[in-house]
């Protein structure tokens, strides 16, 4: 059987998603046997023009947000060439942190804001910018989504296993049954492709897999992660930390909250949540102690950058006031 051809590319992003592909431990060896990586600038040093020489790609893992004209061109080219397009990581799936740049949209192009480079070697001229930062899914249809910042190894491996099937790999899929929606896990076990549009994550909120205990207690002051650290024990939101587990898709297994770090929402919102910001406003408001308007106002003033916190990874796609007509091309 010929090896599947795989392309891996990061647009505007930090390349952690690509690193997380390398971070699948022993399976890297098997990955090498299973696939033929034909395009991977990060690891193989492929040039952007190399894509033109490829007539077909089986699976493309596209990470990063669409910020520049090159990002868009590569997205369109790889989409045309690939049978399956996977939005890898929060940036490609939801816009990610680069998309918070949309908060300061100005009339002038980013080029003008940056100004002319003084030293062309140290600071090369940036290419053309898109007017707004978008997710990959807003620019071209993506067949599958692997959320996370970066995606966790089990889910990256699950996506690879699902899309690049290998005979006799059922035993390695046991984790899929506990972490993925039933439909996806069953599809993977029987060796067929998961339905198009599958998100490699759970159905419920992070709270469902969080190891912490809710005590129905209320907090008086807002804390930031460095101010309070309890390795195990009580619910972080009830301690006054802004933990977004309640609005966020699970699948990570509550990794951060188990370590005492509040959830930052990198898996995007769950299906049941309309708008993550609204959900968090509701969750926080029912958990703080102050009763009188003056006290509540004083507490509200302690919060810093609500938009950047609640929509940290999904501003252009999941903030209801930002979604515009180009959204979700895949639907």
């Amino acid at each position: 059987m010929p090896k599947k051809k795989v392309a891996i590319y990061t647009a505007t992003g930090c390349r952690s998603c690509e690193t997380s592909i390398l971070d699948i431990h022993y399976q890297v060896q098997r990955l090498n046997r299973m696939v033929d990586v034909v395009f991977w600038p990060y690891v193989l040093g492929s040039q952007l023009d190399d894509v033109d020489a490829l007539d077909s790609i089986d699976v493309c893992f596209y990470a990063g947000a669409i910020r520049t004209e090159t990002d868009r061109r590569m997205a369109e080219k790889l989409r045309d060439t690939s049978r399956h397009m996977v939005a890898l990581g929060a940036c490609a799936a939801f816009g990610g942190m680069p998309a918070l740049a949309n908060l300061s949209v100005t009339d002038s192009a980013p080029q003008e804001a940056i100004g002319e480079p003084t030293d062309p070697v140290a600071a090369p001229t940036p290419g053309e910018f898109e007017p707004h930062v978008k997710s990959l899914t807003q620019v071209v249809p993506a067949d599958y989504v692997v959320p996370g910042c970066p995606p966790t190894q089990p889910l990256v491996w699950a996506a690879i296993q699902a899309l690049v099937p290998e005979a006799g790999s059922d035993s390695h899929l046991a984790f899929a049954f506990s972490r993925l929606p039933k439909l996806v896990a069953e599809a993977m076990a029987s060796g067929v492709l998961p339905p198009r549009g599958t998100i490699f994550g759970g159905d419920k909120a992070v709270c469902a897999s969080c190891s912490r205990v809710k005590e129905e207690k209320r907090f008086k002051t807002v804390l930031r992660p460095y101010q309070k650290y309890e390795a195990t024990g009580r619910c972080l939101l009830e301690q006054g930390l802004v933990c977004q587990g309640i609005a966020t898709r699970e699948g990570c297994g509550g990794l951060c909250t188990a370590e005492g770090i509040p959830c930052r929402g990198c898996f995007g919102k769950t299906e049941a949540v309309f708008d993550p910001g609204a959900k968090m406003v509701s969750a926080i408001s029912s958990t703080f102690e102050p009763e009188t308007p003056e006290e509540i106002q004083a507490l509200t003033d302690q919060f810093i950058d609500l938009t950047g916190t609640f929509y940290r990874y999904a501003f252009p796609t999941q903030c209801a006031l930002q979604r515009n007509r180009s959204i979700e091309t895949q639907k």
């Binding site: 910001g277 609204a278 406003v281 509701s282 926080i284 408001s285 029912s286 703080f288 308007p293 509540i296 106002q297 507490l299 509200t300 919060f303 609500l306 938009t307 609640f310």
Partner: peptide, 10 residues
């Protein structure tokens, strides 16, 4: 009332 403060800020 409790929700309105944070919501207004957002």
């Amino acid at each position: 009332l409790r929700r309105s403060f944070l919501l207004e800020r957002l």
